[in-house]
Simulated scan of single mutants.
Amino acid sequence: MMQRRQSGSADTASLRVGIILAENFTLSALSLFIDHLRLAADKEDKSRPILCTWQIMNSRPESIRASCGVSVSRNSDLTDPTAFDYIAVVGGLLHGRRQVDEPTTRYLQKAASLGVPLIGICTGTFILCRAGVMKERTACVSWYHRQDFMEEFPDHKACSEQMYLVDGDRITCSGGGGAAELALHLIEKHLSRPLARKASHILLLDRPRRGDTPSLQPHPPLTEEVNHVVDARVRRAMMEMEQNMIDPLSISDVADRLGISSRQLERLFQSVLGMRPALFYRMIRLRYAHALLSQGELTITQVAFETGFSDCAHFSRQFKTMFGHSPSAMRGRSSQSAPIFPPVTATRQLGERAGVRLFEAL
């Protein structure tokens, strides 16, 4: 059981955050967010909430269970929203599960009407949208959940490039590392940059950012291409491939996850995209490799491994065939100079140019 004991005074704190946890919330998102606040809040290192305070709220007295099975106790009932500078909602598992109850939804709506800034962490953004408090606001969504978001909220704008996004008095983040960066942003804004740096140093998560600009999400999403594909089975297959880069699935495994045969999947891809699924899979892995190399942080061998290639020489040959230059020529080059990747609508021409033999079945 985890419980945060409050010993500081919220009246004297420069940053006051109320936290609502969804059922089956993501523990890592909460811990990365709250530990940055904890380390910045104390003048020594005793975990005292002096400079900032945080309070876990729940409409019911029982503890809240995370998706990993760990339970967290509340500090209070749903407190007066104006007692906080921000109210953050930490989301978690999406499908087939209730995330928050009706009293919590009404509480978020009340907070919005009172002008209290709201934060959506991980799929907490979905909760804010369902509560109707994200109208005419752009939401930051992880590339992993973007398709789910677009299907549920077709009238909302979504951003899957940044780790977090500030849109007026609504802040949303992609979860994981995005929760950490968002916490640093709040600490810098309300306390100081040195305190933010202190927290990230202690957590060994120090990564310099360009001023107040959020980092980019580390995975180049296929979402724009996916959104243009009408067939739901092909869209799902594309997402399965994108979510399995380091250890690529076999095409038969992809088909099994969709509940269809490999032959059916081959026909679908040929009909919709004009190419075999193995060709498409290899293409997006090479695109990801291109993005990693442009960041200049990994060696060519590491990039090959991260994109599912066990043979570095084989990876280099395929990379050069697709992009016209070797990985060694690409490494460290600015991502702004990267070529525009061909959309899936143009993959038929790509398949004809590269040759199916280059992208043999996995």
Results as ranks from 00 to 15, higher is better:
L191H: 03
L191T: 01
R193C: 13
R193E: 13
L195P: 10
A196V: 05
A196R: 02
R197A: 15
R197I: 15
A199N: 07
A199Y: 13
S200P: 14
H201C: 13
L203T: 15
L203I: 15
L203C: 14
L205K: 15
D206W: 15
R207M: 12
R207F: 14
P208L: 09
R209M: 12
R209F: 07
R210M: 14
R210W: 11
R210G: 08
R210C: 09
G211Q: 09
D212W: 09
T213L: 13
T213G: 07
T213Y: 04
P214C: 04
S215F: 07
S215D: 13
S215Q: 11
L216P: 03
Q217P: 06
Q217S: 12
P220C: 03
P221C: 04
L222F: 07
E224N: 06
E224D: 13
V226M: 07
N227E: 10
N227H: 12
H228D: 13
V229H: 03
V229Y: 05
V230P: 01
D231K: 08
R233N: 10
V234W: 00
V234M: 01
R235D: 04
R235V: 02
R235K: 11
R236W: 08
A237E: 05
A237T: 08
A237W: 04
M238Q: 06
M239S: 05
E240A: 07
E240G: 01
E240C: 09
M241A: 06
M241N: 01
E242S: 01
E242Q: 04
M245L: 06
M245K: 03
M245S: 02
I246R: 07
I246T: 06
D247H: 08
P248A: 04
L249R: 09
L249C: 02
S250W: 03
I251F: 02
A255R: 01
D256F: 05
R257A: 00
L258T: 01
L258P: 02
L258S: 01
G259S: 00
G259T: 00
S261M: 09
R263Y: 04
R267F: 09
L268A: 13
F269C: 01
F269S: 06
Q270C: 08
Q270Y: 10
S271K: 15
S271E: 13
V272F: 02
L273F: 07
